[in-house]
C-alpha cells in the first residue's frame, strides 16, 4: 500500500509544477496591474514605473516565474498590493483560512450526515413516496444554481427569522483555535448548513443505488434464509459494503472546501478565502490570486491522494493491486 502512496506522491510533483505554471500565466494574462489600478490625477507615471520595477512586474513572465517559484519554495508568497496593502500573503491567508476551514469541516460533516440519512431512508423505502420525494429533492438541488438556495436561506434565516448573525466571523487572532472554533460556530453554521443541504445529490444517488445493488446480492438472501433480521443484515452487511465507495469521496470533499466557498462566502458575507479571492480579483492583487490558486491546486491534489489512501485502507482488494 505504501508503495502506491509513494508513487502517487511522486506523480504529484510534476502536476504541481504544471499547476503553478498555469496559475502564474493566468495571473499574468490579466490586463492592468495593482499600481496602474490605483491611478489618480496626482499619480506620477515615473513613480508608478519605479514601483513596478521594484516589484519586478516589468520583467518577462518566465523571469518573474522563476523568481516567484524560488520565493515560494522559501515560504514567501509575496506581499499583497491591494487587499491588505503591505501584508505578507501568507499572513493574509493564515488569517482567512480558519473561517473557511471551520465552515468547510462543518459543511463536509453535515453533507455526509444528511446524504447518508437520506440514502438510507430512500433505499429502505424503495419506490415509495418518501423515496420519490427524496429523489426529486436531490434532482432539484443539483439542477438549480446553488446561489439561488444561498439567497433563499439567507433571507429566511438572517432577515425574516433572525436567528443567525448577518455577516462576519467570531474569530479573534489573539485567541487559541478551540475558542475561535466555538466562538465562530454561530457565524459558520448557516453557510455550512446551506452548503450541506444543497450538495447531497452525488453522495445520495451513489449510496442509494449502492444500497439497492447490495440488497439484491446473494449473501443478503443467505443471511435472511438463516433467519437474521433485516435490520441486522442492513447494519452488518449491506451498509459496510455500500459505504466503501462513499468513504473514498471524503478526500475529494477537501477539494471543494475552497472552490465551493466562493459563492457562499460572498453571499453570506463570511470573510474566508473565497471572499478573499473575489476581493483580490476585483483589485488585481496578483500575489494573493496566484497564492490562492496554488493553494486550491495543492488541496485538490492532496484530496485525490487522500481519497486513494482511504479507499486502499477500507477496501483490502485495492491494496493487493
Amino acid at each position: 500500500m505504501w508503495q502506491t502512496v509513494l508513487r502517487r506522491v511522486l506523480l504529484m510533483i510534476p502536476q504541481l509544477i504544471l499547476v503553478s505554471i498555469l496559475v502564474f500565466m493566468l495571473a499574468q494574462l490579466m490586463p492592468g496591474d495593482p499600481f496602474y489600478g490605483n491611478l489618480n490625477p496626482n499619480s506620477d507615471l515615473a513613480t508608478i514605473e519605479r514601483m513596478r520595477h521594484a516589484a519586478g512586474l516589468d520583467l518577462p513572465w518566465y523571469e518573474q516565474y522563476i523568481k516567484w517559484v524560488g520565493n515560494v519554495l522559501h515560504g514567501d508568497l509575496g506581499t499583497s498590493y491591494v487587499v491588505n496593502k503591505g501584508w505578507a500573503v501568507t499572513r493574509i491567508i493564515g488569517q482567512r483560512i480558519w473561517p473557511t476551514l471551520s465552515m468547510g469541516i462543518i459543511a463536509a460533516i453535515l453533507t455526509y450526515f444528511l446524504a447518508i440519512t437520506q440514502a438510507l431512508l430512500a433505499a429502505r423505502n424503495e419506490n415509495k413516496l418518501i423515496d420519490r420525494a427524496l429523489m426529486v429533492w436531490n434532482t432539484m438541488t443539483s439542477a438549480v444554481p446553488s446561489i439561488v438556495f444561498y439567497f433563499i436561506m439567507m433571507v429566511l434565516f438572517v432577515y425574516i427569522i433572525p436567528i443567525f448573525p448577518i455577516s462576519g466571523t467570531g474569530i479573534d487572532d489573539s485567541q487559541n483555535f478551540t475558542t475561535n472554533f466555538f466562538g465562530n460556530l454561530s457565524y459558520a453554521f448557516l453557510p455550512a448548513l446551506t452548503i450541506a443541504l444543497f450538495s447531497t445529490n452525488s453522495i445520495f444517488q451513489y449510496l442509494r443505488s449502492n444500497l439497492l445493488d447490495q440488497q439484491a446480492q446473494d449473501y443478503v438472501r443467505t443471511a435472511r434464509a438463516k433467519g437474521v433480521q433485516i435490520k441486522d443484515v442492513f447494519r452488518k452487511h449491506i451498509l459496510r459494503n455500500a459505504f466503501l465507495p462513499i468513504a473514498s469521496g471524503i478526500g475529494y470533499s477537501i477539494t471543494g472546501v475552497l472552490g465551493g466557498a466562493i459563492f457562499a462566502e460572498t453571499i453570506f458575507g463570511y470573510p474566508g478565502l473565497g471572499a478573499l479571492f473575489v476581493q483580490a480579483l476585483s483589485g488585481r492583487d496578483y500575489t494573493v490570486i496566484t497564492a490562492l490558486m496554488l493553494l486550491q491546486g495543492f488541496l485538490a491534489l492532496m484530496g485525490g491522494l487522500l481519497s486513494d489512501i482511504i479507499s486502499a485502507w477500507v477496501d483490502p482488494r485495492i491494496r493487493v493491486k
Binding site: 493566468l26 494574462l29 475552497l258 472552490g259 466562493i262 480579483l281 486550491q296 491546486g297 485538490a300 491534489l301
Partner: peptide
C-alpha cells in the same frame, strides 16, 4: 479536473 475551474473562469 484538478484545476480550480471556477477560479480560472473568474480570472479569464
Amino acid at each position: 479536473l484538478v484545476m480550480p475551474i471556477i477560479m480560472i473562469l473568474a480570472i479569464i
